[in-house]
Design a binder for these strands. Structure first.
Lengths: 339, 339
DNA sequence: AACCTGGGTTGAATCGATTCGACAACGAGG
DNA sequence: CCTCGTTGTCGAATCGATTCAACCCAGGTT
């Protein structure tokens, strides 16, 4: 069931079949129909490897995901889903590579083996070995997130710095003077995870600008870690009346800790942050938060990558997202200190 | 940077380089070292497409996932992660295909384009077009979940029927007489989603066997659907004192509804079911539940697929999982009706 | 009638590997 | 000294497509 078989049955040469398939040269209507009939009858589709070998491109994108050991966050999952879907719309397949460290066989296979036309990286560190590795290679790539020095690469990212700053300003406007930042896990931040650092930078700057007291703490990416972190915060810093967070997975725990301490949201305590819509809406009361537009970002990453593949020498582009902060009902004026 | 380049630099023929790479023929130690040095220096790796073309196998597995539009459940995500990781351990890559319906370009590309050596399907319906399609083709495949007539295919699945039956028996032993089943969404069940039907079958049988009153209801896969379904259940069937569920995503909603109605778990109402450990442990109080072993199942699916690829004519194998029901604290004796 | 034109088709080269059969070199055995 | 067997290396065919240059032929020009 190869192209030769089709050619034989249709009584033409292999090249003619190929031209019917690609439409790159005119083929007379009668022959075209005859060939097409054979193709339809046998449900023939050209061997993807042979085609890739000759054409020099695979019609496949690589997507490097964090290794499965650590469960993917909802946000990461959103990126994967949207990248895969955007690629499918462009008739491209997606090859997955679970790669954490630098010396990863799967990652190397994808980069050097010419298995893909380009790569999308996520979970970017400020200093990222995979990015350096890809920069050295010829392979076009786009990052979701960005390194400390992103110039010269194509990327999409969320402006955590600006978003957290705006959250702080919002809380300050409401009269809060002691504000906490619930960051991602200590390991992630220590490893140079970009959003963690940028959120902290935005927090620190806004806190200083408004003359507030800011407490920042790291917190594992799950409910129980959130509960523990929040409980500790409430006892060590009882004067804190509001928190901003980029750790959506900790939200249920934060909620439980506040309930356990008898603090009613938003009357006694305000919470705002960056979180996927469904986390925000599952919070009680619904969380005032910016929603990371994973769907758009994944699609945009694919679009940027396709550009880069089409014109590898053109100047790389990027896109920084500033999603709006949806006002829901988890933030209110600070409780009066006279009581 | 192809094999010819290596051969030239090492002053040998292309075949000798190939033999060094594969070790399929003896190569004298001096030549071997000389060639290896060139390979290391240039960081050469054979072109995966050329190799696949010649060898007739791609060292790639296809994984068909539900289309991204509907967010993947935690369980599905667990399967994806474990499949990818198990494949990586075997030095295989994974090609993703988001395919819901039958006539899907991405799915067809994978099946007919010889892009993969085998396919893993998930989210299997009792009658599944994709399974029929794959059966017709030559391509080895394994399903996570099973059709109504799984004979002749390799599969892994969880014994929802047995698990739910055991949940019902457990509740009956505790004295509950009116029990509800919170199933997956109505659309899913209507579409012939296996676990939904099998859970219902197990529920019905156990309820009859123990002479209980059983109420079964469908419920969307998220917290708010769970809340709505549970609220409705509590008002329409106030005598129900326990529920079994296979809908983990609805658990937070179920919890909220019970709290809102003032029913204390497990004193006034018992909940048991099948749910990933982290859902069960986030329930208050922790949920007595069986945990679907997604990690093992994904790895086993890959193992079965590799068997099938190695020996396509051998009898297919399967594996049905009966994970233990972990006793936590969400089930207690039925409240006494005298009150 | 010879010449051109151009649409339609084909043969052959090519992509980058693998692998088989052939062959050269060399030591051992008769 | 000749033959035989081993060991190591090479040339050429092959996998299944794409694509270029060449060619054929019908129809229109001169």
């Amino acid at each position: 069931m190869n192209i030769g078989e089709i050619a034989r049955r249709a009584g033409v040469s292999r090249s003619t079949v190929s031209y019917v398939l690609s439409g790159k040269r005119a083929v007379s209507e009668p022959t075209r129909q005859r060939i097409q009939a054979v193709i339809d009858e046998l449900d023939y589709r050209p061997n993807a490897n042979a085609r890739a070998l000759k054409e020099g491109r695979t019609r496949t994108l690589g997507l490097v995901i964090p290794p499965a050991s650590q469960r993917l966050t909802d946000m990461q999952l959103g990126f994967v889903a949207s990248v895969v879907e955007a690629a499918a719309r462009a008739d491209l397949d997606v090859l997955l590579s679970p790669s954490g460290g630098d010396h990863d066989r799967s990652f190397e296979r994808i980069v050097t083996g010419r298995r893909v036309d380009g790569v999308i990286l996520m979970e970017i560190r400020l200093e990222d070995d995979r990015v350096t590795r890809l920069r050295r290679s010829r392979l076009p790539f786009v990052t979701i997130g960005r390194t400390a020095e992103p110039a010269g690469t194509s990327w999409v990212d969320v402006d955590y710095e600006g978003l957290i700053a705006r959250c702080v300003h919002h809380l300050a406007d409401l009269g809060h003077r002691h504000i906490a930042l619930v960051n991602r896990s200590a390991e992630l931040v220590a490893a140079g995870y970009g959003p963690g650092h940028r959120a902290l930078a935005g927090f620190a700057e806004a806190v200083t600008e408004r003359g507030l007291t800011g407490i920042d703490l790291c917190c594992g990416d799950d409910a129980s870690a959130g509960e523990a972190a929040m409980t500790r915060l409430l006892t060590t810093h009882p004067d804190v009346t509001a928190a901003a967070t980029i750790n959506e997975a900790a939200l249920p725990g934060i909620q439980r800790a506040l309930e356990a301490e008898g603090r009613v949201v938003p009357r006694d305590f305000s919470v705002v942050g960056v979180a996927a819509a469904h986390w925000a809406e599952d919070f009680r009361p619904p969380l005032t938060a910016a929603d990371v537009p994973t769907l758009d970002m994944g699609a945009e990453a694919v679009a940027l990558l396709l550009e880069r593949i089409a014109a590898p020498t053109a100047a790389p582009r990027h896109r920084l997202y500033h999603p709006p902060i949806s006002l829901r009902s988890s933030a209110a004026p600070a409780p009066s200190p006279l009581r």
